[in-house]
Design a binder for these strands. Structure first.
Lengths: 110, 110
DNA sequence: CTATCATACATAAGTCATCTAGGTATCGCA
DNA sequence: TGCGATACCTAGATGACTTATGTATGATAG
């Protein structure tokens, strides 16, 4: 496997979900993923930052510099309308996929 | 995404599951995955056959030529003890992962 | 007061699973 | 006779990830 941690392709939908309630900066997105999954998913920074740039390049996120609650400079990512549509699509894809794989792994002999 | 169909890394556990009840040939494994997931997952042959060779190389499958029910030659894959251990590990990994991602996608604003 | 950890960003190089696109051969059926 | 299904295969391209490294600042422990 290329990734020993992530199933490749699942990071994007998590990022989109993270910013679905309002702008969030990259480091905070990584923290959100780690926390809401109880450390099951730990996103490496070398995966996170390229992913953010990728999503921005595709028009799903917009960036804007801001200041954190603790007074530090940080680059905030805001979801675009296209990003919201993409989130819906990818959430649906994930649900169908997870349902299918889980069912297959639960299956009894054919 | 490299794959527009599979989340990369989920194919191995499905193959291992397919052969967990007895030897099965490659083409049949592909059909089993497609059928038990109601066509949600369609494994390309260019992904399937290299994956079978990979799992064999890692000692999780053994190959053996045989004849199908319809009288055709086919290469059957049999699970090794190490393969069975790997199946258990990967099923657990999948379940924890799927639970975590699904929970994150269901999450309410922090 | 200084070292270390957490925050916050970034990129380069390497790995490797997958997709795309081709190929061979046999069998059943129209 | 031709086509779809079965059954196998590989080469080349893609691109998301891991590992490793770099910068800089703020907070905190000792």
């Amino acid at each position: 496997m290329a990734g020993s941690d992530l199933y490749i392709g699942t990071l994007d939908v998590l990022i989109l979900k993270a910013v679905s309630w309002g702008p969030m900066h990259g480091y905070g997105i990584g923290r959100w993923i780690r926390q809401t999954t109880d450390q099951v998913l730990t996103v490496q920074e070398g995966a996170l930052y390229p992913a953010l740039h990728r999503l921005q390049r595709r028009g799903w996120l917009e960036e804007e510099w801001g200041v954190t609650e603790t007074g530090r400079e940080a680059k905030y990512y805001r979801m675009t309308p296209a990003g919201r549509r993409q989130l819906r699509t990818e959430v649906e894809r994930w649900r169908a996929y997870a349902r299918a794989v889980t069912a297959a792994l639960d299956a009894a002999p054919a």
